[in-house]
Design a protein around this nucleic acid. Structure first.
Lengths: 267, 267
DNA sequence: ACGAAACTCAGTATACCGTTCGGAGTTAAC
DNA sequence: GTTAACTCCGAACGGTATACTGAGTTTCGT
C-alpha cells in the first residue's frame, strides 16, 4: 500500500518516500544506486553551484547515470527536494539537549537554525517541499516543544513560539540571502560532513557584505537621499539598510517577548 | 549615463530601470508598450496562474506581442521581477501615517504587511530581486523608520526593529504559503485594483487549511505518533503543527520585546 | 524633401529544464 | 526454462530564458 512511485497525489508520493514506505518487488537486476546517494548528490550540487543549478540532469551526471534512471528512485523533482530538506535536518543537535533553561535552549536553537541556513542557503529557495514534514523534521519539532516543559505555556503557545522563532530566522535568512543564482561562496566540503567550522559562516557573511557594498555604491549614484530624510539619518548614524543589522537584535527582542509571556503564565 | 539596457552588471541595470534613468533616443517608431503596462501584465500573470507560471512568454502573449519585443523594454527576467516587487509597494499606506503611538503604528504595519503577502503570495517566490530597493520600497522604509521618532531608540536599532518585523512576517508567510506552483485560489481582480476585501484574504486562508487537512490525513496514516510524545501532546491539545498558530501570537511577542527595549531606552 | 541613422519588433536558434516513452538487458519467481 | 518484473537509458516532447539576425518603420539632419 501507498507505493511511492504510483501513489495518486504528489504529496502522498513525497510522504511515502520520506517515511520509507517502499513497496517494490525483488525481481530484476540489483539497483545501482540508493536514495541516500541521490539525495546526497543533489545536496552537493545545490551547495556547489547554487540552488538554481540543482537539476535532475546535473544530479544524474554527478552520479554517472542517465537522467531517466533517477525516475526509478524518485517520482520527480518535488519529491527529491522534500528528501533534501529532511536530509539536512539529520545532523542537528536536538533542541532540548542544549544546556540551560528554556531561554538558553531557545537561543541555542535559533543560533543553530541560523548557522544552518547560512551554511545551506538553498533550503530557503526550494519549491513547496518544506510543507512536507519528514521524520527528521518531526523529531526536531518534538524536541523543540520539550524546551518549554515546565513553563506554564499552553500547548498551542509552545507550537506558536517555535514557529515564530523559525519564521524570524528563515525570514531574515531570505532578506540576507546571497544571490540565489550564484553558487555558494564558501563551496566547502560536502553536506554530509556536517561539522563545518565557524569560518565558513564568517566567509559567507563577508561575501554578502561585499554584494551589499556594491549595491549601495550604485544606489548612491542614482538616488537623491534628501528625499528620504529618516533613512538618511539612519544611514549617517552607521546603520546599513537591508544589510547589516545583526541577527541577534531581533532574536533578543523576540525572546524578551516570549519571556514576558512565560512569566505571566507561571505567575 | 547608466543606460539600463546596456549597463554592465544585472544589478546596475535593474537599479537604473527602477529609478527611471532611461536614456533612449527619440528616433524610430513609437513604442507600442510602456514599462508600466508590462509590469502590470506580469503581475496579473503571477496573480492568476501562480508565480511559477510567470514567464516572459506568457507576459508577451498577454500583451499580444512577441517575446523578443519585451527585451527592448527590460533587459531580462530578473529586472522585471525587481520592477514587479517595487510596483506592489506602490499602493500601500505609509507606516508612519497609521494612527496611534509607535506600537499601534508598528502593529498596523505588520498587519498590512501580512495582508499584502497573503494577497500577493508570489512576492515571496521571486528571485534575488528583493535585494534591489526601488523608490517605493525606500519611501516605505523611510516612513517606517519615522514610527520610532520620539522613542529613545538608536538609528541602527530602528532599522533592525523594522527589519525584524519584516523578517517575521515574510518568514511566516513562507511557512504558510499555499502551493507555490498552483495559481492563487481567489484569482481576484487585477493587482492594480489595490483595494481588495478582507474576504479574499479569508478565502486564501480557508483553501490553505484544506491543504493542511489533507496533508495531516496522509501523515496520520504513515506516522506512528507515539514516537513523538511532545508533538502528540500538542496535537491532542488542539494545536496543528506547521499550519495553524495565529500570526498574532508571534507578533505580540515581538512587539512586547521591542516595547521593553523602548522602555529601557526612554528611562 | 530625402537619405540614412536609429529604433521596434518578430522569427529563429541555442541551451537548458522536467518528464515520458519505449526498448534492451537482467534477474528472480514460478 | 519460461516469463514477468525490474533497471537503466537514449531519444523525444514541450517548456523556459536569452542571443542574434533581419526586415520594416519613423524621425533627424541636411
Amino acid at each position: 500500500m501507498t507505493d511511492p512511485l504510483t501513489a495518486s497525489t504528489p504529496l502522498e508520493r513525497a510522504l511515502a518516500l520520506l517515511w520509507g514506505r517502499d513497496t517494490r518487488g525483488s525481481r530484476g537486476p540489483a539497483r545501482g544506486l540508493t536514495l541516500d546517494r541521490i539525495v546526497e548528490a543533489a545536496i552537493e550540487v545545490a551547495e556547489r553551484e547554487g540552488p538554481a543549478a540543482m537539476s535532475l540532469r546535473r544530479v544524474a551526471a554527478r552520479l554517472g547515470v542517465g537522467v531517466a534512471s533517477l525516475y526509478t528512485y524518485v517520482p520527480g523533482r518535488a519529491e527529491l527536494e522534500a528528501l533534501m530538506l529532511d536530509a539536512v535536518a539529520i545532523g542537528r543537535t536536538l533542541p532540548h539537549e542544549w544546556p540551560g533553561d528554556w531561554r538558553a535552549k531557545l537561543t541555542a536553537l535559533a543560533h543553530d537554525d541560523w548557522r544552518e541556513i547560512r551554511r545551506h542557503p538553498w533550503v530557503l529557495e526550494l519549491g513547496t517541499a518544506e510543507q512536507v514534514p519528514g521524520p527528521n523534521m518531526l523529531r526536531w519539532l518534538d524536541s523543540a516543544l520539550r524546551i518549554f516543559d515546565g513553563t506554564g505555556l499552553s500547548e498551542p503557545e509552545k507550537l506558536s513560539a517555535i514557529e515564530t522563532v523559525d519564521a524570524y530566522v528563515r525570514g531574515l535568512g531570505r532578506l540576507r540571502r546571497p544571490g540565489a543564482d550564484r553558487p555558494a561562496s564558501g563551496a566547502g566540503p560536502t553536506a554530509a560532513s556536517g561539522t563545518a567550522t565557524e569560518a565558513a559562516t564568517e566567509a559567507a557573511a563577508e561575501s554578502e557584505s561585499e554584494d551589499t557594498r556594491e549595491r549601495d555604491q550604485v544606489l548612491g549614484r542614482l538616488v537623491d537621499f534628501d528625499d528620504y530624510p529618516a533613512l538618511s539619518r539612519a544611514l549617517a548614524a552607521g546603520g546599513t539598510p537591508y544589510s547589516g543589522a545583526p541577527f541577534e537584535f531581533g532574536l533578543e527582542r523576540l525572546l524578551d517577548g516570549i519571556e514576558q509571556l512565560v512569566l505571566r503564565r507561571s505567575a
